[in-house]
Amino acid sequence: MPVKWVLYWQPNQGSTVSSQILNEATQCVESINGVKEGRWKATLIYYKPMLRDQANQAEFPRDFLGISLADQPSKYYFIIRSQRIVLESDSSIQLIMEKLQSYKSKVALYFEGFQYQLGDFRLRVGKVVPTHSENVRGIVMEGMELFAFGADSYSHLVVILDAIYDVEYLPISSMEKSRKVMEEFLEIWHEALFKRSLPGKFVNTELNFGEFGLGDSYTPQHTAVRYALVMAHMIATVQAVRG
């Protein structure tokens, strides 16, 4: 499958993120002739163990998460980042997890927004929101206040870039071989954004897929790992901004 990159918005020191930035980013895609294709959504759930004795919490993974991707509705992905595990399964595994009553959802997040086609690429621009964000102003996770949502503020923005067609006969399922065209496209995107003088930038995540047992040939499991890593970066960014 074609390579995807997942970028996250890194606000400048001291600046906050607002829906204005999402609007600007969206307008920016349209200004470079992006054709709106419709909405997209992905769901990410952090799980926590259901323990009879809370004293032994340390024995269980604190970073166990599940992801459903818009492109793969029949699949579900589990990730334990600290142990470099990514598992692909049928989406029915969520029912099995419910039946087992050993882990339950701690926080559920939606990645949602619009997708655009730009020549050989597809660009998805969106925000990350808790599933019931309307009434929730803060969700405590790992002992830190991670999300503080008002009616008009989004802590997190993401951009997902897909190469959707073969570009100049390059095999775009190879991560290494597609890197150059992806970078070239991002340069155009960054230039367009730069003109708007936004207080931050979209950052790509570099990671070693080999550690997860994944090769150079791109699969949906790579995407799931990218989402997990982007989430970790966004959490770290929020924590850093708040000091």
Partner: peptide, 9 residues
């Protein structure tokens, strides 16, 4: 210690 009740898979 895991789970509300013990489980099997």
């Amino acid at each position: 210690n895991l789970g509300v009740v013990s489980s099997e898979v």
